[in-house]
Amino acid sequence: MTPLIKYLLHLADNTLILSQRNSEWCGHGPVLEQDIAITNISLDLLGQARNLYSYAATLIGGEATEDSLAYLRKEREFRNCLLVEQPNGDWAQTILRQYCFSQYQYALYQELLNSKDPQLAAIVEKSIKEVAYHLRWSSEWVIRLGDGTEESHRRMLKAIEELWAYTGELFEAADYEKDLQQEGIAADLEKIKQEWQLKTEAIFAEATLPMPRNVFVQTGGKQGIHTEQLGFILTELQYMQRAYPGAKW
């Protein structure tokens, strides 16, 4: 498997798994408008995943399709970051997870617009407007909850405690990212990390939330070593195709 295929699967898995997590809110959102918002975000992410999987499938060739990549790979073959597989928790935890990911994704996609791989650049160009929406929405919610009531502030603090160890992995380049970065296909994660920290410090300041320092960084997802969460997600996501192979609507 070439570094580009691994990288595309990494990008696609991030969006598929976060999409699946967010979709768990469908019908359970705190208010109707926000239920619609989070499921719309879920749909955008699923659309991105489809584009990335389809492209990966053409490079893999043979029998591979977007569906086989989403439905028939095993846990260890998924390369998503640990952050996106973490449970929804309460609304604060879902918001913080979305914010951390969207801020990262926005900075990353801005760099990938100039990727030397034209199809990847095209997928990113198509997606980045949607990501800007997700980022704006989740940033506003981080501020609203952090600088909200005592209760909402407390819940944001708890969300930070739950999730922060998983944010560092976003910026730790896997071997395939390093290879592709040299070729001008993947982005320089060090640059994205600085951008992410700068923007996040500003948002957290407005949200009256403390920016954690020197937190232990949990890694592994990009290489297929996941938390116990991913197995449960895939069990649900892949159930139909595993139980009834080839089932169609």
Partner: peptide, 8 residues
């Protein structure tokens, strides 16, 4: 060309 990536 699609309007939104996830547009069904």
């Amino acid at each position: 060309t699609p309007t939104y990536t996830g547009c069904p």
